[in-house]
Write a protein that binds this DNA or RNA. Sequence first.
RNA 1: CGGGGCGUAGCGUAGUGGCUAGCGCGUCUGCUUUGGGAGCAGAAGACCGUGGGUUCGAGUCCCUCCGCCCCGACCA
Length: 574
Amino acid sequence: MLRMSTLFLRTLRDDPSDASVASHRLLVRAGYVRPIAAGIFSWLPLGVIVLRNVERIVREEMDRAGFQQVHFPALLPKDPYEESGRWDEYGPTLFRLKDRKGADYLLGPTHEEMFTLMVKGEYSSYRDLPLHIYQIQTKYRDEARPRSGIIRGREFVMKDSYSFDLDDAGLEVSYQKHRLAYISTFDRLGLKYNIVSAMAGAMGGSKSEEFLAPCPTGEDTYVLCKKCGYAANVEAMTTVVKNKDLETPPAIEVLDTPNTPTIETLVEVMNKKYNANIGAADTLKNVLLLADGEPICILVPGDREVDLKRVEANLPGVKEIRLFEDEDFAKRKEFVKGYVGPQDAKKFGIKLYADPRITVGSHWITGANIKDRHARYVTHGRDFQVDGFVEAAEVREGDACPNCETPVVIDRAIEIGHIFQLGRKYAEALKLTVLDAAGKSRTVTMGSYGIGVTRAVAAIAEQNHDEIGLVWPKEIAPALVHIVATGKDERPFEVAESIAIELENKGITVLFDDRKEASPGVKFKDAELIGNPMLVIVGKSLADGNVEVRDRKSGSKEEVPVGSVVSQLINLLK
RNA sequence: CGGGGCGUAGCGUAGUGGCUAGCGCGUCUGCUUUGGGAGCAGAAGACCGUGGGUUCGAGUCCCUCCGCCCCGACCA
């Protein structure tokens, strides 16, 4: 039993000034956590209980699925990460340190290497597979910008698991097993979430899904169709293409369009000078990018921006892209900033990638590759050919759902879990092979699955609070029942204590506010702030042999005879 | 890393270049009070983030660095 009189806890009357999101604000105010440095927190007793509860549920569900727990150090030598290439790839996000001898170490940001090497060290036959192992470990990432309190810290607890299979079919089975285990985990955690496809299937690449907990302070945006349930990461959203311009357009016509470096000015001049009656959507925007140093051109309708994240996610094999800058234009004089068009791409030796909306046969008003001039009737397939289609244009609320064409909504969420088919990247780099039935050496294929444990605490807090405090789901709360004794006499305290003891004997956890010196108001405020599911008040109505039972979430109150309160609570908490 | 904001007691804050840095909450002592963050009296608690400068005089003005928060870039 937790007792407020001795609990190491100090609640704050005011919101901490540097906390803006609800979970951060309330977890600090209610005394669950304390900030130590940017993105680094200490956990106080109540916080530890909540964190352990989340951990326990995650562990129970992993174990139930037959996965086995292991534990790696957080402090790791450089070698495995050098071998996998991530010592260099990870960049400044990796916390690096040296020991007294000057040898390089790191604080693990994620443990693919260690899992791979551990399996390599123990297993060598296909008959040992499939294998699923997991750990719950503190991870370290020197984020460029930690934010939103617990949601994105530099130190955080994560459950990460890995599956090892001989072939793709096995990997798919392992993936589905994990997917089901995640569904039961997040259901038990009391989280609302959507399972969102995280990579465009059409473009190949590994299968990957994210578990997103919707909430306004989330930092991930995703697309949701309220009719058919389609949900996708913005990067993975696919475009429904409508054919336009079915009739054959006239030949290209080059027009004088002085001072029209932007779509907006172009539309204005076209309409005023040429009575064109067009909108931004009738123009073609040509955005020059450097993809791993090579210039490419992305075509999107003029009314849409290019979403660089979508381009990057959908251009296979490209590691880094960035926009052309003034100095790049200076080097390549053939590209006239503000007047770029696709019709000379071959001549310029540049690759074209078109958003799917730029259908073959469609014609556009676009740059003439000459300053102050634009061209119209520039037709895809006749006047230019593209090297490929790529999902490039920004996704907007109201765009058509790829399944049912209903307008989609765009929502924000916290990524609480991620499952994906890793493939052979690490197995290859670290040479994890087994002998198959024919005695031939085969590289193992892996799946990687993560749950942000500390982040889940924050997400639960985000989804379960009101103006006055936290409202924990049953399995997460520090205690199921919060008992407040009021009044000056001994009797309410004695009655409250006996109720508490009886509840604990029945397996119901209790936080008993047994403070004599605190006023009733203080106790009520603290109870609401801390947010246990049920509140029992022993005081005034004791004269009639009653106590008050309140539901934190609904706010409903009920007078219950002392004798039946325990059985009533057991009922309510079922 | 770019842009913005902010560093004054445990928390929230006030402080035209001029006395001993003020207030609320919390903490401690005593009395009083017990169904909505009680009342009275008293007390402790501050290197005003750091270093430098301007000035007769700096919490206040200037510069450096550090830290924190927000937006963006970034983020298995």
